[in-house]
């Protein structure tokens, strides 16, 4: 007899979990973000990243982008649950579109101690075409954008330089279908 549980636990759900980016158009009204966040926490879904901004002032619409993990069945259920919320116009899994684009922005502040580190940092910044926002004696701030993956790689590379201090902020991915 198979031992699958009646109640799939999140641990099972994450076994075949895939990263998905969901794009949700909502009426910009009080409580809408709380509704969405509450839906995720109440039903045991994951939010890896979240981004909310008004995109149409006249129609009072916001676009919410959510990066989440879950197997396909869970993602479809999340979409169906999102679409039940009264202020939600639409919820789309970008992966289901034939064509979609993603981007993220990251600001990195790096404190270094010596010339050698400075050189290495400059080198990586150049490779990844990051923009210098500010540079002082031993502090540099870069802005890097692109896919989340590209930003991850940049940060991994910075990590290979020993003895520097990194502080950062990321917007989380945003995306658009065509």
């Amino acid at each position: 007899m198979s031992s699958t549980s009646v109640y799939p636990t999140p641990i099972n759900a994450f076994k075949q979990s895939k990263r998905s980016v969901l794009s949700v158009i909502v009426d910009n009204e009080p409580g809408i973000l709380a509704r969405i966040v509450g839906l995720f926490s109440g039903r045991g879904y994951n939010i890896e990243a979240l981004n909310v901004t008004v995109v149409d002032v006249k129609k009072n619409l916001s676009r919410i982008t959510i990066e989440t993990l879950g197997e396909e069945k869970v993602i479809s259920q999340i979409i169906a649950q999102l679409e039940k919320l009264v202020p939600v116009h639409s919820a789309t899994n970008l992966a289901n579109l034939s064509e979609s684009y993603e981007a993220e922005i990251c600001l990195v502040k790096i404190e270094f101690e010596n010339e050698e580190q400075d050189q290495k940092i400059l080198n990586f910044a150049d490779i990844y075409r990051s923009r210098t926002v500010q540079k002082r004696q031993n502090i540099v701030v870069y802005e890097i954008s692109g896919t989340s993956e590209r930003i991850n790689k940049f940060l991994d590379d910075l990590d290979t330089i020993g003895g520097i201090k990194v502080e950062l902020v990321r917007s989380g991915p945003i995306g658009l279908g065509i």
């Binding site: 069945k73 479809s76 259920q77 169906a80 649950q81 679409e83 039940k84």
Partner: peptide
């Protein structure tokens, strides 16, 4: 009538 009831527990 509720989309989220479809394929939630049973496919």
């Amino acid at each position: 009538i509720d989309q989220s009831s479809i394929n939630k527990n049973v496919k």
